[in-house]
Simulated scan of single mutants.
Amino acid sequence: MSQTAASELDQATLRQAYGTFPSGVVAIAARIGDVPVGLAASSFVSVSLDPPLVAVCIQNTSSTWPKFRDAAHIGISVLGEAHDVAARSLAAKTGDRFAGLTLETTPDGAIFIDGASSWLDTTIEQELPAGDHAIVLLRVHGLEVHSDVAPIVFQGSRFRKLVVEQH
């Protein structure tokens, strides 16, 4: 095993190391005015059951995230294994991020992606600076679980499917 010294760390090496950890992928979406706004994130984590809180990490350079600060509610959709194309569209810098997707919108403006493993209706609780990202803490106001939909996994810069072991 060769170890990289702290003085030798660069973004490519860090990205490679961080990429060994598999994570789910979420769509973050809301209606801002009359326009659906969305992005994809693989840095989603549950934080607290009481109160119900989740968090995502958003790059400081995101031109999409600032639009969410005006959202009454934000929808978090845990993307299913059939959403590999959707995850790439939602992560794109240009074009229609919602092309080909069926959306459901709440009266408060949270947008959910059809075919997701779960939906969380959230509001921004707090935003904390964290290096080149912000940690966004979100309060969960409602949810819907679709336990028959397997989640998509992002690992090593690739989308993957979970394999269920048979016992």
Rank of each mutant, 00 (worst) to 15 (best):
I58Q: 00
I58V: 12
Q59L: 02
Q59Y: 00
Q59E: 06
Q59D: 08
Q59T: 00
Q59K: 08
N60H: 02
N60C: 05
S62M: 03
S63G: 06
S63R: 12
S63Q: 07
T64V: 10
T64C: 01
T64H: 02
T64S: 06
W65T: 03
W65R: 05
W65M: 04
P66Q: 04
P66Y: 09
K67G: 02
K67F: 09
F68P: 03
F68Q: 04
F68N: 01
R69C: 06
R69V: 09
R69N: 11
R69G: 08
R69D: 05
D70F: 05
D70K: 13
D70H: 07
D70I: 04
A71F: 02
A71V: 07
A71L: 08
A71E: 03
A72S: 12
A72Y: 01
A72D: 11
A72P: 01
A72Q: 11
H73R: 15
H73K: 11
H73D: 08
I74V: 08
I74S: 04
I74Q: 03
I74F: 02
I74C: 03
G75M: 04
I76D: 00
I76H: 03
I76Q: 01
S77H: 07
S77L: 04
S77N: 05
S77C: 05
S77Q: 06
V78R: 01
V78F: 04
V78T: 01
V78W: 03
V78A: 04
L79V: 07
L79W: 00
G80P: 02
G80A: 08
G80W: 03
E81G: 01
E81V: 07
A82T: 13
A82M: 12
A82V: 12
A82D: 15
H83W: 12
H83V: 07
D84W: 04
D84A: 13
D84F: 03
D84P: 00
D84M: 05
V85D: 14
V85G: 07
V85P: 00
A86Q: 14
A86E: 10
A86D: 15
A87W: 00
A87V: 05
A87E: 06
A87P: 01
R88G: 10
R88W: 06
R88S: 13
S89M: 13
S89N: 15
A91N: 07
A91I: 05
A91R: 10
A92E: 11
A92S: 15
A92C: 09
A92Y: 10
A92W: 10
A92Q: 14
A92K: 12
K93R: 15
K93Y: 09
T94L: 08
T94K: 13
T94N: 12
G95E: 12
G95S: 10
D96M: 14
D96P: 13
R97F: 12
R97T: 13
R97I: 10
F98E: 11
F98P: 12
F98A: 14
F98M: 12
A99T: 13
A99K: 13
G100E: 15
G100W: 13
G100T: 15
G100C: 14
G100I: 14
L101A: 14
T102L: 08
T102Q: 14
T102P: 06
T102S: 10
T102C: 08
L103D: 11
L103G: 09
L103S: 09
E104I: 11
T105L: 08
T105G: 06
T106C: 01
T106I: 04
T106V: 03
T106S: 14
P107K: 02
P107I: 00
P107R: 02
D108H: 07
D108E: 14
D108K: 07
D108G: 04
G109M: 01
